[in-house]
Design a protein around this nucleic acid. Structure first.
Length: 598
RNA sequence: GGCCCCGUAGCUCAGUGGAUAGAGCAACAGCCUUCUAAGCUGUGGGUCACACGUUCGAAUCGUGUCGGGGUCACCA
């Protein structure tokens, strides 16, 4: 049980004894005391004054005295300022916390939840490489999955690959027309970039053909339909749907190239999936329930044979589910796949990490499931996040105004190298160590940058300014970790006994920064729960930054290896070890590695 | 136009019912014979978009206004 809940419980117990009345944690708040006041935790009394007909002073005194009496080993005193009852925790109670097994505190997995959850993220198209927007998506999804695991959930990471459709055919046609049999291998190009280049080539050629037609007096919308390359692409899509062998072969060959490229990127990013769905396997799934919906009367058919659902009773529009020609649309496939997921994995929750432009779509999806009486309709959760935009506006892959994921990673790693060299630290490492370090730092900076902000806020990325390595950043936290490890190495060299195993004396008087650190470390499990509840990794990022910052202050103020006494040294080694453990754990939840040295 | 999200220091963001609203960046002033200065300490910088309301108490809740974005496809 955490300190705040312990205190809440103690207060309830005392209140009930004093007033012969039932209290709950909703009746009053327990906060951390603001630094400008004496005390560690504050019980806010205002909300209790009226129902108990007490003055702040009277209630504060009665409650303060009783809590102190009943928990003499935990609290050392109290003060009352206005309606705030400030309680001070005994040094001994804080020290006792350090004597617990570090792993219990950091990775206690008190199993707050045993839910089975699927987190679906990344979900790329196979006609172009991953870009900055995918990175936010991937880091978010991966991190949320880790956070949920840390609370005890069983998590399946999944991705749905959009491997079919007109956009794929565009790359395919362009390759047929212009590649002369070139391959990623023959051109030494990463597969996804290779295919993406043909997607761009398609659009260039298409634009050219359209303007050519317009010059010859064809109306623009007409020209867009009649451009020869577009007609070929449409035909190819039909051939694909009919399973024409040459087309299928080309399709799997080119997708194969893309997957090789994606795998390389995912591997470098440290991202992975337990299950990958392919749209080519699932796009027909939804058709079954269309019949079901029609017979139930939930759906209706129009004269042209198209199938619709009316959602106007819940404030949404009429939505198409099946075209007149019997082909399904996006949402139809979605419903089919949702059903399959819940049934196959027996999920309690399915989280979709998708941009906020699809909020409406996901609302419609949920609503249709609900109207069909699917029991999991309310377990569909859309974790929506704001788009990443550039200072020059939106990213558009067709126009080449995207920040490519691989390029950005390269750049970040390069920046890490530059910083390290400038600081003159290169000589301490071997070539291989440096390579690892640059990856760790570059990726750390990038992941932290994308995760430290509330997911739902859109963010503007300025490609001109490289991501920072100072202040509220990944490398700042990584640096703190490396320094702690350095201290611990030194302590070990000093030898004799292994300090982290030896006992600390409860009598030790704590300095303010020592207290602050222990109290802050104690909060970690609460922070994980909050992040899990909000599906928000930025909660973790803010916490771990603050922790690192506090440790850095402590670091300058107090020496560990050369502490003023053996007792102090032991105590501080415990604090350092625990801080390092929490930093490593928290960063891991963000998908960020921490270096032993930097 | 309907619905949804956002508006906090020059910039990027925390804080979502409690005390005098906090960080980072940028600016300025200090700190390396002492565990790694990618660090630490300090200074300046705010009608929390605006208005009204609810409350003992509002950046936080409600209503309205203004500004920015998204969405309302037989696209995915």
């Amino acid at each position: 049980m955490s300190f705040t809940t312990t205190i809440q419980a103690a207060a309830i117990e005392s209140l009930e004894e004093l007033y012969d009345h039932q209290f709950s944690d909703k009746d009053f708040q327990v906060n951390e005391t603001k630094p400008e006041f004496e005390g560690d935790y504050t019980i806010v009394l205002f909300s209790l004054l009226k129902p108990l007909k007490e003055s702040p002073d009277n209630l504060g005194k009665k409650l303060g005295n009783l809590i102190l009496k009943k928990n003499a080993s935990f609290f050392s005193g109290y003060n009352i300022i206005k309606g705030f009852l400030n309680l001070s925790v005994k040094d001994g109670a804080l020290v006792a916390l350090l004597q617990k097994n570090y792993n219990d505190i950091c990775f206690g997995k008190k199993a707050l939840s045993h839910k089975k959850v699927m987190v679906e993220y990344s979900s790329p198209n196979t006609n172009k490489p991953l870009h900055l927007g995918h990175l936010r998506n991937i880091f978010l999804g991966w991190s949320v999955a880790e956070i949920l695991k840390a609370t005890g959930c069983t998590v399946y990471k999944s991705s749905i690959v959009n491997d079919r459709g007109i956009h794929i055919c565009k790359s395919m046609i362009a390759w047929e027309e212009f590649a002369n049999g070139a391959t990623p291998a023959s051109t030494h190009t990463k597969g996804d970039h290779f295919v993406g280049d043909y997607y761009v080539k398609f659009n260039d050629e298409y634009k050219e053909e359209v303007s050519e037609l317009v010059r010859n007096g064809v109306e623009k919308t007409r020209a867009e339909k009649d451009a020869p390359i577009m007609k070929k692409t449409q035909q190819m899509l039909l051939d694909w749907e009919n399973g024409k062998p040459e087309v299928m072969e080309l399709w799997s060959k080119m997708n194969g190239w893309v997957y090789e490229g994606f795998d390389e990127t995912y591997k470098r990013l440290g991202s992975d999936f337990d299950k990958t769905f392919y749209e080519s396997n699932t796009y027909l799934l939804g058709k079954d329930f269309v019949q079901e919906g029609l017979s139930k009367g939930t759906f209706h058919k129009k004269e042209d044979g198209s199938v619709w659902i009316d959602l106007s009773d819940v404030g949404l529009d009429e939505k198409l589910l099946l075209r007149g020609d019997g082909t399904s649309v996006y949402i139809t496939q979605d419903i089919g796949l949702v059903k399959q997921k819940f049934e196959e994995y027996k999920l309690d929750k399915s989280i979709y990490v998708i941009g906020d432009e699809q909020i409406h779509h996901m609302k419609v999806l949920k609503e249709i499931c609900r109207k069909l009486g699917m029991p999991f309709a309310d377990k569909i959760i859309h974790l929506s996040y704001g788009m990443v935009e550039l200072t020059t506006g939106k990213m558009k892959s067709r126009e080449g105004t995207v920040v490519d994921a691989d390029d950005l990673v390269d750049e970040m790693v390069e920046t890490a190298k530059k910083h390290t060299e400038e600081l003159g630290k290169v000589k301490d490492f071997t070539e291989d160590e440096l390579k690892d370090l640059y990856e760790t730092l570059g990726l750390g900076a990038m992941k932290f940058y994308l995760l430290r902000v509330d997911p739902k806020k859109r963010m503007v990325f300025n490609p001109e300014e490289s991501i920072d390595f100072h202040g509220f950043t990944g490398p700042f936290v990584q640096y703190t970790y490396a320094r702690i490890k350095s201290i611990l190495r030194k302590v070990e060299e000093q030898g004799a006994s292994d300090n982290s195993q030896s006992k600390i004396t409860n009598e030790e008087k704590l300095f303010p920064l020592e207290r602050e650190l222990i109290i802050f470390l104690e909060k970690y499990l609460n922070v994980i729960s909050q992040a899990a509840e909000e599906l928000n990794p930025s909660v973790i990022a803010n916490y771990v930054f603050h922790l690192a910052k506090t440790f850095n202050s402590f670091y300058t103020e107090h020496s560990v290896a050369n502490a003023e006494s053996e007792e102090k040294k032991t105590l501080r080694v415990h604090i350092a070890v625990m801080t390092a453990t929490v930093i490593k754990s928290a960063m891991q939840l963000l998908g960020i590695k921490v270096p032993e040295r930097m």
